[in-house]
Simulated assay, not measured.
Amino acid sequence: MSLIQSIKSVLSPPHRAALPFLAITGGVTLLGRATPWRVTRWIGNIALAGFGFCLYFFRDPKRFPPPRADLALAPADGRVVSVELATPPASLGMGAEPVWRVATFLSVLNVHINRMPAAGRVTKISYHPGQFLNASLDKASDLNERNEVLLTLQDGRQMAVVQIAGLIARRIVCYVEEGTPVEAGERFGLIRFGSRTDLYLPPGVTPLVSAGQIMIGGETVIAHL
């Protein structure tokens, strides 16, 4: 990502999910700083810092997916923490054969909008309550609170995106419903304040990324389909 793109990303408008947080921190800021008392002004200054953090955390930059239908794109910004063969989530009915899984860890500094890796139709969504372990750990895929989204591609093959809550993240948001048609790079949800997103590729598809690589959601190519 170039310097100009980085600046545009930081200065991009916030996602609508930020509105309640901005309203609360903004209101406390105005009330606290409008009073003559030192304590309330101090509270107002803290709220102002929270307002700035919410603007930054919920930023929603525009992304430009490659104009090709044969690609699997990164479903989130962040750093790849593992690329390995793994059994898909049993609740999605993708079978027991291991497929390639690319796990991306999102810190509180990353853009937290989740995006569809390819065009197709959402055919199943399965939510699982769970723990809030460090999302960079492998066991987070099975133990943490998560939301599993099954995507059926236009050629009938299937892939899955799993939103996983982390040590700080406590709220998974998913806007799509079963039966919803989607496009590659389309926004479909977010996870508040640090998380992980796993992408299960279709059988026979090999990832082109490696652990440690930085992802740009909706733009970075994960694999050729």
Rank of each mutant, 00 (worst) to 15 (best):
R41H: 06
R41L: 02
R41K: 10
W42N: 12
W42E: 13
W42C: 13
W42R: 15
W42Q: 14
W42V: 15
I43M: 12
I43H: 04
I43R: 08
G44M: 09
G44W: 09
G44E: 10
I46E: 07
I46Q: 11
L48K: 14
L48V: 02
A49Y: 06
A49T: 13
A49P: 01
A49K: 08
A49I: 15
G50M: 11
G50H: 04
F51R: 08
F51Y: 14
F51H: 13
F51W: 15
G52D: 09
G52W: 04
G52F: 08
G52R: 09
F53I: 14
F53D: 03
F53Y: 13
C54F: 15
L55T: 01
L55V: 02
L55S: 07
L55R: 02
Y56A: 12
Y56G: 07
F57T: 03
F57K: 08
F57R: 07
F57G: 03
F58M: 09
F58P: 09
F58S: 10
F58K: 10
R59A: 03
D60S: 13
D60P: 07
D60V: 07
D60M: 09
D60G: 05
D60W: 08
P61F: 05
P61W: 01
P61R: 04
P61M: 02
P61C: 02
K62N: 12
K62D: 14
K62V: 13
K62Y: 00
R63V: 11
R63H: 06
R63P: 07
F64K: 15
F64H: 15
P65N: 09
P65S: 08
P65C: 05
P65H: 08
P65E: 08
P66H: 03
P66L: 05
P66G: 10
P66M: 04
P66D: 05
P66F: 05
P66T: 06
P67S: 10
P67W: 05
P67V: 08
R68M: 11
R68D: 13
R68P: 10
R68Y: 10
R68Q: 12
A69E: 15
A69I: 11
D70L: 10
L71K: 02
L71W: 06
A72Q: 14
L73D: 07
L73C: 04
L73W: 00
A74W: 00
A74Q: 06
A74V: 01
A74S: 13
P75L: 05
P75G: 09
P75Y: 00
P75C: 07
A76T: 04
A76I: 02
D77Y: 01
D77T: 03
D77P: 01
D77Q: 06
D77W: 01
G78H: 04
G78F: 06
R79E: 11
R79W: 00
R79P: 03
R79F: 02
R79G: 00
V80F: 02
V80H: 00
V80I: 14
V80Q: 02
V80E: 00
S82I: 04
S82L: 12
S82C: 10
S82A: 15
V83A: 04
V83M: 03
V83D: 04
V83W: 01
E84H: 10
E84Y: 01
E84Q: 14
